[in-house]
Design a protein around this nucleic acid. Sequence first.
DNA 1: TTGAAAGCGATACCAT
DNA 2: ATGGTATCGCTTTCAA
Lengths: 350, 350
Amino acid sequence: MQRKATALDVAKRAGVSRSAVSLVLNGRGDGNVAKESQDRIRQAAADLNYSPNPIALSLRNQRTRVIGIVSDEVVVSPFDGNIIGGADDVARAHGFVTVVMDTERDASRDESAVETLLDRQVDGLMYVTVGLKPLDVPQGMLRVPSVLANCYDSSPAPRLHHVIPDEVSGGREATEHLLQLGHRDIAFLAGAATSPAVPLRIVGHREAMAKAAIPVREDRVFMAGWDINDGFHGAMGLLSATERPTAIVCANDRLAIGVALAAARLGLSVPRDLSIMGYDDESRIAATMVPALTTMALPLREMGAAAMSMLLGQIEDPARRPTSDGSGHLETMVPCRLVVRESTGPVPAL
Amino acid sequence: MQRKATALDVAKRAGVSRSAVSLVLNGRGDGNVAKESQDRIRQAAADLNYSPNPIALSLRNQRTRVIGIVSDEVVVSPFDGNIIGGADDVARAHGFVTVVMDTERDASRDESAVETLLDRQVDGLMYVTVGLKPLDVPQGMLRVPSVLANCYDSSPAPRLHHVIPDEVSGGREATEHLLQLGHRDIAFLAGAATSPAVPLRIVGHREAMAKAAIPVREDRVFMAGWDINDGFHGAMGLLSATERPTAIVCANDRLAIGVALAAARLGLSVPRDLSIMGYDDESRIAATMVPALTTMALPLREMGAAAMSMLLGQIEDPARRPTSDGSGHLETMVPCRLVVRESTGPVPAL
DNA sequence: TTGAAAGCGATACCAT
DNA sequence: ATGGTATCGCTTTCAA
């Protein structure tokens, strides 16, 4: 592997000095360097396939064009992977590179991940979580421009901008979809109590029911958990009763799988006898379920992109960083998206 | 954010020169610097919370301690995420950081991802794929130490070391597990034809059947696809026939979900009437299925760790890089791991 | 219009 | 034993 061409090589070939090369290649040639020299320099650079050494640039400019991303569990999750994908797209488009450190659900690794990244001189930081949650913001994040994606500063006076999904309207629109199909007895399997998304979605559900003037039966709304077996057991309880709901909204697509399993075991046909809604639009799951799952898609890519745009904005214009006086608008809320497939249908005739 | 301490700051505080600081902090103090000065230097470094600037180090040493990882689709996959997790663990333990670029299934982005990474002066490269596959190795990977994880050089004379799972024994052991439970009529839903893992697992299946002296019915082994609906339709065909298999091996856990759905719809109880095996041990799926899935776990973390160890070895000792004469052992095969849960059981009595 | 020189932070060689 | 100096590759200021 022969050494890459440096600015000096280009200068020699063009018969000028390094400074001239630098000026021209950075668009500040006009008025400083003779038109003719400019051409020679550009030609030489092209010949040698020159591009400046980013390491040297970083050292010189004190900016690395690297964004550090800390994630609580990307590497095992199809979810926030998409947030990172959206963020990375935006970063790449601006000539930045992302370095992600995953703490694998071990919050005690947060600080050290941030320090490692800071040590590497990242220009900005982003913290991404799989599920919506309050975050005990690592100290280091306050030292450089930073944003939060799918989580929010848990301190009394939030200091960082965050981007989160609009869970209330997500819950509301899910229920509204079912309402429009004529359902009146709708159950809501709401995930696990630890997630702040849960109460928000329930609020949305209640709003929709209230608007339709339908009372919410308390035994129809409960925390089930997040996994297939949770959905299964929740549904078995709901569906074995003499009076069973005609539709079930699940807090994620895996719960919906459990519900579908339960329905099949009980001889119920979906969506003829029972409508099922998922949440997340999990890739490789929702679209290929049998029947294909109607679900509420989380706007993960958009969230990642929005968070990164916000961050890059702060980096290039430090004035945009949130002020410590707690003023200003620190929240971006992205709407969820209803995806209608085949697991929901008209309410069965009585 | 006040500036970080530099070697010069430490030198001043200790009343010595930068060189002395460098020597001492790199363990080459003895014989060069007075014991007393050494102590003062170490003390000063601790006081100032000094650590060398990695950017400056990179420029100076021409090594960045950054490993570039190109992945074909991590960000949407719970699978190779684990490979990367395993790789990252090892890298971190050696003071390296990983930068991953995901091409999101667009092979035309391979070269540019590699170039971006190379441009950033990574010390080594790793290419990771979700499923086993031959790889058209990006040119750039030949310019620095590189390894392949879950894929292999498709060229006639492989130039890069690769780490892959032992699919043949995976297929064999899956079938053997069922054989031990007394099953004789075993179906094999084998994924999609495009994956090289498919024929390998089938070979394993046939080996196991042959060893048990059971003829393989050709209508019992076929490519179904990789998704839930594929498993469902495959199983509906298999299970609606008058003579149905007592066990089905699936090429992944999502297929197994489809099979379970079909079984439930047909009123078949698992594992009483039908045993189902998955493959992958996909997180959040296999362990929480109803019933919990017996499955063949892919050794993803181990593969990532093995690949990274290999790579770091090559970086610190270039002599270990594969020679272009095609000699040497370029393959590391990692065994799969049977995980027995509840979806498999004794063959039903006739 | 051009080139020489300083500096970003660290290491290694070479005098002293 | 110690400190001065060149070097890594680049940008920027300043003199010519």
